[in-house]
């Protein structure tokens, strides 16, 4: 829980929203729907590291694009993916680039919702490289929404998503 507290603090400092819920498909469906809010054009990619079963309740009730084509990706407002670990010191989550749709929707959507397991939190970035899940894999540390300070002040939402919502499963 120490790692979770630290993670929550650092992730929120990057501008991300962090939520902790039961690892249960109904609870997850509720949390995702809340995070989506009024947004339309919700795009989903099959999880790489979590069990797809967790998303069954969500997928059964919501009008979600599950097998997105170029047109869907271009216009996506919300993109949902999983992630394979989180880093407490930096407030980062690590997203696998093994799934094509996941790699692209976590980038082109206005809001990125990422789901991962609470026990996947590690302490420092260096610990990620020790994980078997990170060996032989293309991935990206995501630390908050995309941002820029190039236009004279800090702006969240540069080329990538302007919102990052992290759902941790207990």
């Amino acid at each position: 829980m120490e790692l979770y507290k630290k993670f929550r603090k650092t992730a929120e400092a990057t501008g991300a929203v962090v939520e902790l819920i039961e690892a249960d498909e109904k609870a997850l469906a509720k949390a995702i729907n809340k995070a989506i809010g009024d947004a339309e054009r919700v795009v989903y990619s099959d999880p790489v590291d979590l069990s797809p079963k967790l998303f069954r309740a969500f997928l059964s009730q919501k009008d979600v694009i599950t097998n997105p084509h170029e047109k869907d990706l271009e216009a996506a407002e919300v993109g949902i993916t999983d992630a394979f670990c989180a880093v407490a010191r930096t407030g980062s989550i690590c997203l696998s680039l093994d799934n094509n749709a996941g790699a692209v929707i976590s980038l082109l959507s206005k809001k990125h919702i990422a789901v991962l397991s609470l026990d996947s939190i590690v302490s420092r970035p260096r610990d990620v490289f020790e994980l078997s899940a990170a060996i032989e894999r293309d991935f990206v540390f995501i630390s908050g929404p995309s941002a820029t300070a190039d236009m004279g002040e800090l702006v969240r939402g540069a080329h990538g998503p302007g919102y990052l919502h992290i759902i941790l499963l207990i």
């Binding site: 650092t10 930096t90 970035p125 990170a134 293309d138 990206v140 995501i142 630390s143 995309s146």
Partner: peptide, 11 residues
């Protein structure tokens, strides 16, 4: 920053 928004590890 502790890390910037994206740190890509690619092959």
């Amino acid at each position: 920053q502790p890390l910037t928004s994206y740190t890509n590890i690619l092959r």
